[in-house]
Each structure stands twice: as C-alpha cells, then as structure tokens.
C-alpha cells in the first residue's frame, strides 16, 4: 500500500495535503484499492462550507458507494473538474491527478485530529489483523 510521507490522513482513508491556508483532499491508495474501479465521484460546489467530519463527497464503484467526510472545517476552494469525465483517475493516480478538492483551512488546530504517515501506516496494519 502506498502511503505518502508529508500528508495527513483520516481513519476513513482520506489524505490531506497542507499548503499554507489550503488543504488538498483525496482518498488513499488503500481506499481506491478497496473500492475497485471508481465509476463516479460526487463533489460539492465551490464555496460550500463544511465542518470537520461532515459528509462532503461520495465516491462510487460498480458495487460500492462510500461517503467522504471533510477532514477539516472550511469552504471549498476548488474541485477537481477532471473527475466528472474521468473518475478512473482516482484509481490511476489517487495522490495526484485523482485528488477530490481543495478547501480553505478554517481552523489549523483541527490538523492535530489527523494522523501522519507513520500513524496511518500503523492504522492500516491494525486493520489487516
């Protein structure tokens, strides 16, 4: 399983990349592999505001649907426009081209609720047991 250093993670297998006031959000390699072929991603609209842990998006494969929760509170800054036509980017490049959205970070203190790469790896190992 590909777990990238420098990113933050949630227990729901979302990753977050922090660039100053902007957080980029996607799903992890573990998540895309568990889902299988992604067929559809339902994203929020730009400027929609979410609280940490609110449902923010949905990702679907042929036989599964998963809700995606906001890893941090804030307003949506940008959504990945490619996913509408090419949802398989989530499978092909989950940490880059297959990102879901970018949001403005409202409260940096919330970052401490996220896992770093090391803790996420340990979390994945605990799931495998």
């Amino acid at each position: 399983m590909d777990v990238r250093e420098g990113l933050f993670y949630t227990k729901e297998h979302e990753w977050v990349k922090i660039d100053g006031k902007i957080a980029t959000v996607g799903i992890t390699d573990y998540a895309q592999s568990a889902l299988g072929d992604v067929t559809f991603v339902e994203l929020p609209k730009k400027a929609d505001v979410f609280k940490q842990a609110d449902q923010i998006a949905t990702v679907e494969s042929v036989k599964a649907a998963s809700d995606i929760y906001a890893p941090l509170s804030g307003a949506v800054e940008e959504i990945n426009p490619e996913l509408d036509n090419v949802p398989e980017l989530v499978n092909q490049s989950c940490y880059e081209k297959g990102f879901f959205l970018k949001m403005q970070i409202e409260d940096e203190a919330e970052i401490k609720n996220l896992m770093d790469a090391k803790s996420y790896k340990a979390y994945l190992e605990s799931l495998a047991k």
């Binding site: 299988g36 072929d37 067929t39 559809f40 679907e60 494969s61 042929v62 036989k63 949802p87 398989e88």
Partner: peptide, 8 residues
C-alpha cells in the same frame, strides 16, 4: 462484461 464501463 465490463460493469465499470457501463457505469462510467
């Protein structure tokens, strides 16, 4: 059959 293609 390619069910992923059908859904995409």
């Amino acid at each position: 059959l390619d069910e992923a293609k059908a859904a995409r």
